[in-house]
Every structure is written in structure tokens, then in C-alpha cells.
Design a protein around this nucleic acid. Sequence first.
DNA 1: GATCGTACAGTACAGTCGTACCATCAAAGC
DNA 2: GCTTTGATGGTACGACTGTACTGTACGATC
Lengths: 214, 214
Amino acid sequence: MWRMPKLADHEERRALIVAALLRIAASRGLHAASMRTVAAEAGVSVSTVQYYFGTKERLLFAGLQHQAEAVGRRIEAGLAANPGGSVRDSLYAWLVQLIPVDEQQRAGYTVFAAYHALALTDPALAEQSYTRGSAELEVVLRALLADAQQAGELSPGRDVGAEAGNLLALATGLADSVMADMRTPEAAIALLDYQLDQLFVAAFSTSPAAAGRR
Amino acid sequence: MWRMPKLADHEERRALIVAALLRIAASRGLHAASMRTVAAEAGVSVSTVQYYFGTKERLLFAGLQHQAEAVGRRIEAGLAANPGGSVRDSLYAWLVQLIPVDEQQRAGYTVFAAYHALALTDPALAEQSYTRGSAELEVVLRALLADAQQAGELSPGRDVGAEAGNLLALATGLADSVMADMRTPEAAIALLDYQLDQLFVAAFSTSPAAAGRR
DNA sequence: GATCGTACAGTACAGTCGTACCATCAAAGC
DNA sequence: GCTTTGATGGTACGACTGTACTGTACGATC
């Protein structure tokens, strides 16, 4: 079996179409994303979308995967941007990535909410969804908190497992409130900061960056 | 202008149809709720649905209103069921209502998530949605916490405004995690309880009920 | 008892949906 | 140069969508 003639970059074409799908889902809703509207948005024909994804279900699936990977990359970038800081700063950098601060992140969250709602009644989509991703996040969070506790940075009497779960749930809930225009992203981040203050002892002296944030 | 001949109870007929809509939305998704499927589920003709709601948009709107009122009643009932308890117990009774513990509450949350996702791209729906409702919840929460602080029940150095916002966001996030099957309702409630323990001083002695819960 | 408006059922229509099918054009391999 | 195959456009089909329209029982009013 020899090499297939490579006339088009499949990866690139698929990315082009998925990007069009996500643009439509973010602006007009996932229900407005039909084969025809996605094809038009991507500037290709419906047949091309069919060619690269076969069925609409697989297209939607690819869109969800793309979205999940984007969120994962964002979290990693947030962590990497703050390599030498304290545990508290790492946590802060982490959790802040979950709050939608600009229009792009809002768009991502909109798409995510649509998939989330869909997954609640579609078993096939629920399998994939973000359940596993969020569970992994919590494990990493717990490890970070355990480190901090061993270093004596945490307030006394704290359960790292419970705190990890609550921090993640808090960030999720705050992100929701920002999406619902209940508060500004800045207000949500301030609340996150406040909660971390309660969790860490002597938070005001950990780093100049943390102090400047308040 | 005299009385209209009242052959059918409009309120009852509308409730019948809305209930059918919500059943479909909870089991098969809001996207599966068409004029025809709703009519069939309600056991009436499409014309009847048209007669009582005119357009599908108004039907969906009525469904959202019904859902919002149901949540409001649930919260009120949770508060009323615990009249003589401490502030902490009231808070607990309050927030626990936001966690979906049975299949009915799960169904309600599923419908809510679908509307929530829809509202993010539909300005007309966003107007209504739960933004205002949640904001009201937060105001009541803050008042409760302010009472507790004046009575010296809160841990020192707490900002009641921030705590109110964070408690509501935490409950929302925990509810989400339960819906995503990340944890059981009982685990979510335990986390809520843990957070209240951190917030209130000497939580172990406030009431036998609070102690028994742990 | 004639009339009128309510409360439905049935149906028709224009549009959109996902998908299957066919044609075509260009590039790769012989 | 011919054949093969990847990549794409165009189109057609059956199902479904929301809604408008028509018909028609039945209870209330006169």
C-alpha cells in the first residue's frame, strides 16, 4: 500500500469547517448550525462538509472535541505563564482561566453551554463531554492544595479534597454568573481572589503580585 | 363588555400543554419539542396548541416562566420548612434546594440548562431568563449573612457580600457537577455543608440537626 | 330556536433539514 | 496520454418544521 496522493490538507480543511461551526454556534446558537449554514460560513459546499465529516453527528462531535481541547490548552497556558510563583498564585492563575473575560472566551462558553445542554439528553454526547476533563482538573487542584498544606500555607483545619471540589465548583458557578450578566468578569475574579484569601494564611504577604491584584 | 362564555379552563389547558412541553424537553431535549410532538404528548391536536399559545416562541416562553416559578416555589418551601432554626440551618435549607437530588429535580435542571443555553444567543429569551431571579436570591442571602454576622455567628473577617455571591456560585457549580455525574447529590451537599462550617464559628454546637447531618 | 363565538380537529403550504447520488475537475501514477 | 482517485459542486428526495386556513361541533346569549 503506497502513499495516498495528498491534494488537500485534511487537518486544515476540517479545522476550517469546525471553526465555521463554532462561529455559528457562538453567535446564532448551536441549533442554527445546519449543514448548509456551516458550509456557507466556511465558504465551501455542503458536499465538502459531508466529505470531511460524513454526518452531522460527527461534525458536532468534532466541534465538541475542538472546544474541549481549546479549554485544556487555555488552562495549561495559564499555568505555564506563572512558573515560579507560590501555590496560591498558581491556583489563582488556574482558576481565573475559567472565567470568561473577553468576547472570545464568552463565545467559547456559549458553545460549551449548548453542548452541555445537549449532552444532558443525548447519551452519546454525554459520554464525551467534559465530565472526565473536569474530574482531572479536580485531581490536579487537590494535589496543588496538598502541597500548600504540607508547606503550612493553608489555613488550619482545611480538607484539601473538599476545598479542591469547592474551588472548582465556585469557579464554574462564577463563570455562569458572568455569562448570565449577573456580574462583570472583574467582579467574579475578585470573588475568586477573596475565597483564596480565606483559604490561605497570611495571604497579604505571599507575593507582591497577589497584593497588587487586590 | 360582558363576561365571555367560559367553556374551557384556559389556565388548566395551558398548564397541560406546558407540562407536556417540559416533559419532552427533560427527556428528549428542548430541540425535540416541536408543535407536533408537544401536541401529541399532551394528547391534543396541533391546532389546540396554536389556539392557546399562538406561536411556538410564546409556547417556549411560557415553558421558561413555568420552570422559573417552580424553582422559586421550591426555594420558598425549603425556607418555610425550617422556620425556627439558626441562620446556618436556614442557609443550609436554602442552598440544598439548588442541588438536584431526585429525578424530578434533574429533569427541571435539564430543561433549565437548555433554556440557559438558548438564552445565550437569543436576546428575547435572555431578557426573561433567570438573571433577575438569581440576583434576588443573592440579595436575600446577603441579608441572612448580615444577620448572622451581627449576631457574631460568622467567622471573623468575613465580607458578607462576597460570601453571599460565593455561596450562590458554589451551589450553582455543585449542581452542575451533579448534573454532569461528576459526583453524587449527597457528596455535593456534604461539600456545601463543609463550606458552611468554614463560614460559621463553632458550627458543631449551633444545633443538633447540623451535627447530625455530618 | 336562530345566532354567535369558543374550542377544537384536519389539512395544506412553503420552507428547511440531513443525506444520498451524480458530475466534474485536477493531480498522481502508470 | 491515459487511467485512477481524491476533492468538490450541484441537485434531488423524503421527512419534518411552524403556521395559516378551513370546517365544525357545542355551549351561551338573545
